[in-house]
Design a protein around this nucleic acid. Sequence first.
DNA 1: GACGATGTAGAGTGGTCCCTCTACCTACGC
DNA 2: GCGTAGGTAGAGGGACCACTCTACATCGTC
Lengths: 175, 175
Amino acid sequence: MTDTMIRIAAGLERAFAARGFAEPSVEDLRDAAGVSLRTLYKYMPSRADMVLAALEHRHARYLAHLFDRLPDGPEAALDALLERVGTWLATETAHGCLFHGAVAADPGSVPLREVLSRHKAEVAHRAGEATGLAGREIELLVLMEGLTQAWSLHTDAAVISAKRLGHGLRSREAG
Amino acid sequence: MTDTMIRIAAGLERAFAARGFAEPSVEDLRDAAGVSLRTLYKYMPSRADMVLAALEHRHARYLAHLFDRLPDGPEAALDALLERVGTWLATETAHGCLFHGAVAADPGSVPLREVLSRHKAEVAHRAGEATGLAGREIELLVLMEGLTQAWSLHTDAAVISAKRLGHGLRSREAG
DNA sequence: GACGATGTAGAGTGGTCCCTCTACCTACGC
DNA sequence: GCGTAGGTAGAGGGACCACTCTACATCGTC
């Protein structure tokens, strides 16, 4: 039951990541999920629900990718974190953040915006904990968001630049 | 002739900025442009061309907003630049960067990606010139992109955070 | 006052899409 | 052997959308 659900969500995430939110039809999504149309609609009663399920699935995977067994020292942690953002972008997505992409594809959707907010807030919060920069979550958010957006244009150079900006953040404790 | 064209492009830009790229139908765009369907298609032979025209128009307006009469001193220039990014987001767009939004709505479009690249490259280049940070364009790009994305969640706090990150960038000339 | 360029108004067409529904299959507990 | 739960396959409805086309209005120029 929940097993089927997870398998479907994984397939949907893959489809949306590869082709965006506008293009794939529900029949494409059915193929990506590997179930029949009826089963798909049983678990996700509308296309909008399919988007939400895919994002939920991605949220869990993204957190795991960024924070599992991160180095302990604060400087090492921040560098490793930004490095992992780069590897995520290189392996998992063709362009930009999937959550922003979903909102951009349907700006009127309130639940979508809520998912985006929760996602970013949790990423920022855990980044603050992991790097010993609690209280500077917004700086960390700006850094990670900027890297995510700039990566598609500059790949590794963007990672290096984000790390430099991050070092500046730590060397001065000015408020 | 070109006058009509500009008026149409301005209306299209407003429509896409307000409602995203997926939602508005061509009839909605016609209303926003204030011309007939026939005239609209005369100047922009397809809906994809309407998107491109809207982005071209926005590109010019964005550059003007960011760089017209920017303060001279490098520190003041960077702060003012980031401040202007904030005011742009507050007055011009409900959510995120319109160029990224357009690509997200149609990830397969090559001309769209080219417009995005040219836009970001020119913004970064001119930001480097204006702030005396030529050679650090990618850091500036990460900063401005991060601010743009984080702004919708944190508004003014994101501007302040971006400024802090920017100060760190200047205080150390390390490569 | 005729004309040509440029515009408006809006109906129609072909196609796609989301979603529903019918009909059938398979595995398992008892 | 039979009911039940949960699955597949796929056709069809109703709505919407991008785009085209016909018919008519306006206006500056000669």
